[in-house]
Design a protein around this nucleic acid. Sequence first.
DNA 1: CGGTATCCTTTGAGATACTG
DNA 2: CAGTATCTCAAAGGATACCG
Lengths: 115, 115
Amino acid sequence: MKKFPPTGSCPVRDVLSRIGDKWSMLVLLTLHANGTMRFNEIHRSLEDISHRMLTVTLRMLEADGLIAREVFAEVPPRVEYSLTERGSSLLPHIFGLVEWAQANKASIFEERARH
Amino acid sequence: MKKFPPTGSCPVRDVLSRIGDKWSMLVLLTLHANGTMRFNEIHRSLEDISHRMLTVTLRMLEADGLIAREVFAEVPPRVEYSLTERGSSLLPHIFGLVEWAQANKASIFEERARH
DNA sequence: CGGTATCCTTTGAGATACTG
DNA sequence: CAGTATCTCAAAGGATACCG
């Protein structure tokens, strides 16, 4: 029988658990859709993310090398975020999920209603 | 600017948040790898999932029509789980993510170490 | 503007015990 | 064997206030 070891010993589970959090995919999607964006642009694009969680999520994505952060020494300050190569390489797979969800959402909601 | 509306109004976010939880993908993966499985087989396959969370996850996947649950009226009881058509149709996209994670895990861990 | 820091609430999830 | 119920705790995440 094929087994799936605990998170601590499985790098794949580790990596996927990071992008599988509440906000990471959405940040990646909006950066892909809109190109380089400033902090508050991303904030407005996602609407219901809190200030704090946007910072946390951006830091995570940056630490994993999925997005790039560029600070401009201006007043008022300007910080721009964009997808890295690695971040871009992940996006087709996210789109795969999104398209599947779009194609299946109707029947899934029907199914739930029966339960 | 392209926007990404809140979960309550976005069916895609809703659907993806269900399979993006801690265990759903792993259950789907093990059912795909091993075919029809009993409750305790899945439990052993995942190793670190709790009894309770396995039940909860299975109920969710069943409610969304991604897995099928068949109860046999025997003593001791036997319950078998298997992927549905819809569940199977999701798997290629999960594999896309897994392969991406496998290909990128090494450089991601390096990147994290620098931060 | 783009953050940090703090506090507080909500959710996720494990442990344990009990049941048909 | 395959659950359900309860209890508990840790982690995620929101609100708010303050800072360079």
